[in-house]
């Protein structure tokens, strides 16, 4: 199993030889695969140091001169330390000028579990999708990540790529050929009355929950949302409208503009008459120490917690 960053960097590396427009910048953050890239392209790899603000600003200058830029850092620091640089120089400026900067944030959600709340990244989806002109990509596996590389070169606008920190198994396989990044989501599993809507790591959990519920005679659908902005509400609504119960599951604060609000507002705007249950992290930081699943259980996001919630909703518990 590869990490998302290694899968993505490998593909970018493969294109750098044939495309002299590509620059790769890091805020002193690495990966095994990055060592090969920086050895091969010392003129187009820059380590700006532990300086996320400058990472974004230098990337902007390069992009204004026509380069395609990848800016790589730890997700919470990239998005929150440098948020104003992202807002002014990328989101705002790209409305007037063509700018292709791809912000690669590693450490989505609780990827860095035991590193504590400075490294937990539970706000990024909310704040990044609040920015006009910003693409927000939250993949659930490396097949999507690889697929995004050509899109990142072709679409000349600022993008935030929210990458899982740990290796994850594949979700998409041959069906990756059918998927368009622009579609924004994919129905991985068709259900009966209930559908789980998730992104990133939580899509793996949603699939496990749906698999377990099947043994109990509950047929749950799973929709994986991988593009949170731009977004086609009509398409999502048409996929969800026939369900009676929708459960959103995310590694983010709930009720604060993240995945749940995309789904809830899409459903509300279209007159959805069913029930929406939002699952994620409550409105407080987490100082408890332990692995990711332990932290999930404390937050009521363990597989059994989610199954129990679903059965409560369906009144079969």
């Amino acid at each position: 199993m590869s990490t998302m960053r290694d899968a993505f960097i490998e593909e970018v590396h493969a294109r750098m030889g044939g495309d002299e427009r590509i620059f790769f910048l890091s805020a002193d953050f690495g990966s095994p695969r990055l060592d090969a890239l920086r050895a091969d392209f010392p003129g187009r790899f820059i380590n700006v140091g532990i300086a996320e603000q400058n990472l974004v600003n230098v990337s902007t200058g390069l992009a204004l001169e026509g380069f395609i830029v990848y800016a790589y850092a730890i997700a919470p620091f990239l998005t929150m330390r440098a948020y104003e640089q992202i807002r002014i120089n990328l989101a705002l400026q790209s409305q007037l000028k063509e700018l292709n900067v791809n912000l690669i944030g590693v450490g989505a959600g609780m990827s860095y579990d035991v590193s504590g709340p400075t490294h937990h990244c539970l706000e990024d989806l909310s704040i990044m999708r609040a920015l006009p002109n910003m693409t927000v990509f939250s993949p659930s596996d490396c097949n999507l990540v690889r697929k995004f590389v050509d899109y990142s070169i072709k679409v000349k606008s600022p993008k935030y790529l929210r990458f899982e920190g740990k290796p994850l198994p594949g979700i998409y396989a041959d069906n990756i050929e059918k998927i368009n990044i622009e579609d924004g989501f994919f129905e991985l599993r068709k259900g009966g009355e209930i559908c789980l809507v998730s992104t990133g790591y939580m899509t793996h959990k949603a699939l496990k929950v749906a698999g377990a519920l099947q043994w109990e005679g509950i047929d749950a659908g799973v929709v994986d949302i991988f593009l949170l902005r731009p977004f086609d509400p009509a398409a999502l609504y048409s996929s969800l409208k026939d369900y009676r119960y929708i459960v959103t599951i995310e590694e983010g604060f709930i009720g604060k503009g993240g995945l749940d609000s995309i789904v809830a507002s899409t459903l509300a705007d279209n007159g959805f008459g069913g029930v929406i249950k939002r699952m994620g992290f409550a409105d407080e930081y987490i100082f408890d120490i332990g692995g990711r699943e332990y932290l999930h259980r404390l937050a009521g996001l363990g597989e059994e917690d989610i199954s129990r919630s679903i059965k409560t909703i369906l009144k079969v518990a």
Partner: peptide, 13 residues
């Protein structure tokens, strides 16, 4: 913001 953006432009040039 200007100095950092200027650095990026200078490297690009």
């Amino acid at each position: 913001h200007g100095p950092g953006v200027g650095c990026g432009m200078a490297i690009a040039l």
